[in-house]
Design a protein around this nucleic acid. Structure first.
Lengths: 215, 215
DNA sequence: AAATAAATTTAGTTATACCTAAAATATTAT
DNA sequence: ATAATATTTTAGGTATAACTAAATTTATTT
């Protein structure tokens, strides 16, 4: 697989999680910042390689082979993110772009040795699960902070939207994976929350609470 | 720079060390397993980008800009090799191919953080020097085992030819970087050596001794 | 059910990095 | 010095992965 093919497979995988009945050409084009016609070209190629099943005008789904490839790419991406944060000291808003390159390094031996070196982590720095060598993904029990009961303590385990702005906001507020969070008060008018994070009181908007996963 | 351009720059750099007056088109083609005509195409492109100075029919040399780029690629290659051996437990004959891919990962921050994580090594697992962030290469004092005085102890610090066969031979004989070597006897007829390596006696051919650097 | 709009595909073009075959230049041998 | 040989470049062509513009198919209105 070329890097380009891998990027398509990865995007189709992520979009499949939202629309499992078939992924649109335009949706793929949007994610890859390319044109619909380019996507059509590539879908034919991926179909010829039996990585996707493609019906003209009706979108694509991954084949078993394609699904496995996708999981291996996601596995690599997330393991490298763990490496960058845990071993090299990057912050979690800096690692995505670099992992986008590292995920295309081919050696299977490398991935598995990296996995062992990192202690077989089950989630990346954003809290997203890491498929194991066979492609099995451990489900992580999680709730959005906006939905949890009041006055109960939770651990921060991930983010929903991992945009740079949001991650930088979390950094600024010293909210990290593992932080202990408790909702102290909920404002019914605009759903603003008053929370205690690692002991400190903080007022956060509903939009923020709706992007933070806790356990 | 594309990956292909980087590979050309790297090869021109290595060939420059042997023929500093100008590198031949055919020599480059040989190293990259491509055709002379393809090399000519690329030399024009690299010349347009001011990475090489190229005169038709008379080969190329790197410009200052090209030389710096080359050193940064070599730096990345060798740092990743150290990572693969020291941190992930690869043996020194397995790492070259993987480092060929890793050397093209772009982030400068990544390289420098990796360098720090590895403790600013000055040589890779084959004993080749690692350029620092500014491109400065520390000269390593070294002699070939075939040329050293008899009954004096040395440390094995590198190899000249790093072909897989040779590295595997060294592995088999338990010769590694850091091994203590002493030439006990020299056969004048065929230059076969009887050596002591980490205390054990071993007979090695002149060809082997001619590929091992000691200090 | 036809008309309009949106999404998708086809057809034809471009740039990269490679190729072969032929032409041009440089080197070596006589 | 010229002929023979080796090296390098030019010219023209291929596959990949993108593009634009036009045509086709599907979905939505009226």
């Amino acid at each position: 697989m070329t890097i380009s093919e891998e990027n398509y497979i990865k995007v189709i995988y992520h979009l499949s999680l939202v629309s499992p009945r078939g992924v649109n050409t335009n949706a793929i084009a949007g994610m890859l910042d390319t044109k619909a016609s380019s996507v059509t070209d590539m879908l034919k190629k991926l179909s010829d390689k039996d990585l996707v099943s493609y019906q003209k005008y009706h979108g694509v789904t991954l084949t078993d082979k394609g699904l496995h490839s996708a999981k291996m790419i996601v596995r690599k991406h997330r393991l490298w993110e763990v490496f960058l944060v845990d071993k090299l000291g990057f912050s979690w808003d800096e690692v995505h772009e670099i992992a986008e390159e590292l995920e295309h390094i081919k050696s299977e031996q490398l991935v598995n040795k990296l996995d062992a070196f990192l202690g077989f982590p089950i989630a990346d720095p954003h809290g997203d699960p890491i498929p194991n060598a066979k492609g099995v993904i451990q489900k992580v029990e999680k709730q959005l902070l906006s939905e949890v009961e009041i006055n109960v303590s939770f651990h921060c385990i991930g983010v929903k939207d991992s945009s740079t702005d949001f991650l930088k906001y979390l950094d600024k507020q010293k909210i990290a994976l593992g932080s202990v969070v408790k909702v102290v008060e909920k404002e019914n008018f605009d759903d603003t929350l008053i929370v205690e994070i690692d002991g400190k009181r903080l007022t956060i908007s509903n939009k923020i609470a709706n992007n933070l996963y806790v356990q």
